[in-house]
Design a binder for these strands. Structure first.
Lengths: 252, 252
DNA sequence: AATGGGTGTTGCATATGTTGCAACAAACTT
DNA sequence: AAGTTTGTTGCAACATATGCAACACCCATT
């Protein structure tokens, strides 16, 4: 791989955390200031980096444009969105859509709860991979060696007492999820929040995305939330059918 | 500037047009296949590029995550502040910056009038939402159903005889504000104080904040204050440009 | 007005890292 | 099975990125 490009690209996540000046960039990259300057200049010419009035650098508009095109290319999102909204209309809770890519699970869509109490999550943000219902669904579909490889590499932070403690427990949970075709997260990420999720499959049966419904204890108990399971699964299946084209041909 | 990085970054807009295989990328870059391969690999490692099952490359979801993180860490206040100060330097009146959050409009910055007579307001304090110019600007940008939902829920205290009396009047006012792109509050909150305001927009055109200039009658009449409108609008636009990073368009 | 610390910027010699090649591997067509 | 297309690796040659040191600049301090 290319060292120069590697360094240049490392600047992006760094700037995503907030603006930084030349010195800071150089230091965090471990290179000379002049080197950092030239990398930043190149990024700047491509519009990925913007220089604000105080001379500090931050991510540029071009990146947003690219990101926009990137999500548009993920057409699961496009197809799923109206169904997620419809589901939210019926149950009122927060609905998430996530995909697995490069060892990460990312939220790519979200429909906010209608209740005043909202949970914290962020589109584009990596999911708590060891506990989230959507993460379990997406990982459960990998091959057994892949699952094991990933499970070994992960950290298992104990967000709550009910978080997945270690690789063994995680693999076991994935096996259950794979078997039953749906997943839960009962207070594993935040003590008072429960989720239920179902997989969205492509034409070949592989899981291409996962969706979930989340609600805090103060609104509905875990048992009540579970009564929504059939609805969630049906929604996921509808989306799967539309996505895989067995129902409605939509796009070329 | 760096040739290697330049080439690597040129791949991104190329892939934004749709997935492409190694050969196509190499050809459109004008480099050898092996070179393109190494560049793509580096992009891949950073998650900016994703390799789909048919081995073709497309933009990766990480791009989306980066952009999302960036907007979240973008501080309007930080960017706006120097411009607000400059505006205050020129006109001498109190300048406010406000955002909409969770059904409320909050002041997040303020530059005090240089005149001895000052109006009462406080950073972090909720704004008089039915009358303030900044509130009108922020609410006017919501969707029609959202606006109606909020307008219904609000109280309409008659701070003065010129306060907005009810939901119908408020919605009508919002429509006007939305149309004209600026707002006023002429004695609606305190009998002797007038404000004019303008919206600050993000890269996608949505209103992310609003600013206003306020002055009491004893210093300038409402008509005199209105002569500042072009200046206020220009300032808001300058901030918008800087915030959205669209100041410097550059092309290959 | 002069000094000094803090930036960002440029020219240059060195050698490091990138390049294109050509040969190899693998997957599909015929 | 042979042939075509596409992706991948090792290597030698050279172009390119690198760090340095000197410079320019701005701001605060004296």
């Amino acid at each position: 791989m290319s060292q120069t490009v590697d360094r240049a690209l490392s600047i992006l996540p760094l700037l995503a955390q907030g603006p930084a000046d030349l010195g800071q960039v150089a230091e965090r990259l471990g290179v000379h200031k002049s080197t950092a300057l030239r990398l930043l200049r190149t990024l700047h010419e491509h519009g990925l980096v913007y220089r604000q009035e105080d001379q500090r650098y931050r991510l540029g508009a071009r990146l947003f444009a690219l990101a926009q095109e990137a999500v548009e290319n993920l057409d699961v999102r496009e197809i799923a969105h109206p169904h997620l909204v419809a589901l939210n209309d019926r149950c009122g809770h927060t609905v998430h859509l996530a995909v697995y890519e490069e060892q990460e699970v990312l939220y790519i869509d979200k429909v906010e709860s209608r209740y005043p109490v909202r949970m914290y999550s962020r589109i584009g943000k990596p999911v708590a991979i060891t506990v989230a219902a959507v993460a379990k669904l997406l990982l459960a579909d990998l091959t057994e060696p892949e699952r094991r490889a990933i499970a070994e590499k992960l950290d298992y932070p104990m967000y709550t007492s009910r978080s997945t403690p270690d690789a063994a427990a995680f693999l076991k949970e994935l096996a259950v999820v794979r078997e039953q075709g749906w997943a839960t997260d009962l207070g594993g990420h935040e003590e008072s929040i429960n989720c239920i999720g179902a997989p969205i499959r492509g034409a070949d049966g592989r899981v291409v995305a996962a969706m979930s419904v989340s609600a805090p204890n103060v609104v509905v108990t875990a048992e009540e939330l579970l009564t929504l399971l059939p609805l969630v699964r049906r929604t996921a299946e509808t989306i799967s059918r539309e996505y895989s084209g067995t129902n409605r041909p939509k796009k070329a």
